[in-house]
Write a protein that binds this DNA or RNA. Structure first.
Length: 264
DNA sequence: ATAATGCGGCGTCATCTTAC
DNA sequence: GTAAGATGACGCCGCATTAT
């Protein structure tokens, strides 16, 4: 859909689940861009003499969708779960690429940093580590992680004993038994005795659980970070639209005055 | 000084989404 | 269909601010 009224144009793309992405193009001279908005390339794309902003439109609960039963169902779906931030950001055609496991994100100063899901990379000699600690790098893990962190990258130290178990130091002094299943530790060559007995099975189960919790912990942190970023993005859009609204109101006022003068 | 309150972050669980 | 990732919901905790 496209609407061209006066100096500006608007295109609406139907997104998923009641979300529409509205592309609004208005002349450069009709918009004053605040620095904070310019710092966020997801908001404004410049095309010649026009600035294009995108407005996410989320259908209100009672809006339009309530026309029939299928719409009611759709509405329930919307209420049940909003689309993921990844999806929303993709819909916005944002430079914030959320592709597969290589999510990107925006840092506080507007710079985009590489981020994403837990990515384990082995460093050093991955042979049985009775000779010392090995490290795993977790890309874009939270700085508040229990492990050592440097600017979005968390280093997890571990040691592998002669029994094939991996040990992760806890609190710098304690060493907690922790075996990383081979299928889950990407890029890490796992050695160790085969696990078959019921006791080993239960140990394996609890280790799997621990690993799942660890990964989910990291995922939750990442999700919160993305959510904050998303909210920040929306706030920026609000600022843009308020500014645009103000400018248009002033323009309208000026045109009215001009018209009245001409009429008198 | 201390209780009350609000806020933000965290860990976990359950469930949904996505990729294969 | 399944495994792994993403995210909403919940409860907990620590910290800052405010009221008493």
């Amino acid at each position: 859909m496209s609407a061209g009224n006066g100096p500006g144009t608007a295109d609406i793309e139907n997104g998923t689940r009641g979300i529409s992405v509205v592309h609004v193009s208005i002349p450069n001279q009709a918009i004053q861009v605040q620095p904070v908005i310019q710092a966020n390339p997801t908001v404004i794309h410049s095309a010649g003499n026009y600035q294009t902003i995108q407005v996410v439109r989320v259908a209100a609960v009672d809006e339009d969708l309530s026309s029939d039963d299928s719409d009611a169902k759709r509405r329930r779906e919307i209420l049940a779960r909003r689309p993921s931030y990844r999806k929303i950001l993709n819909d916005l055609s944002s430079p914030v690429k959320m592709e597969d496991d290589s999510n990107s994100s925006q840092s506080q100063d507007g710079e985009y940093v590489q981020g994403g899901t837990l990515q384990l990379t082995a460093h050093g000699d991955a042979t049985p580590a009775t000779q010392g600690l090995q490290t795993l790098t977790m890309t874009n893990a939270s700085p508040t992680s229990a492990s050592n962190s440097t600017g979005g990258t968390t280093i997890v130290q571990y040691a592998q004993g002669p029994d094939g178990q991996f040990y992760i130091p806890v609190g710098g002094t304690n060493v907690q038994a922790y075996q990383i299943p081979g299928s889950l530790a990407q890029g890490v060559v796992m050695t160790g005795s085969p696990i078959s007995s019921p006791q080993h099975m239960s140990e394996e189960g609890s280790r799997k659980r621990e690993l799942r919790l660890l990964k989910n912990r990291e995922a939750a942190r990442e999700c919160r970070r993305k959510k904050k970023e998303y909210v920040k993005c929306l706030e920026n859009r609000v600022a843009v639209l308020e500014n645009q609204n103000k400018t248009l109101i002033e323009e309208l006022k000026a045109l009215k005055e001009l018209y009245c003068q001409k009429d008198a």
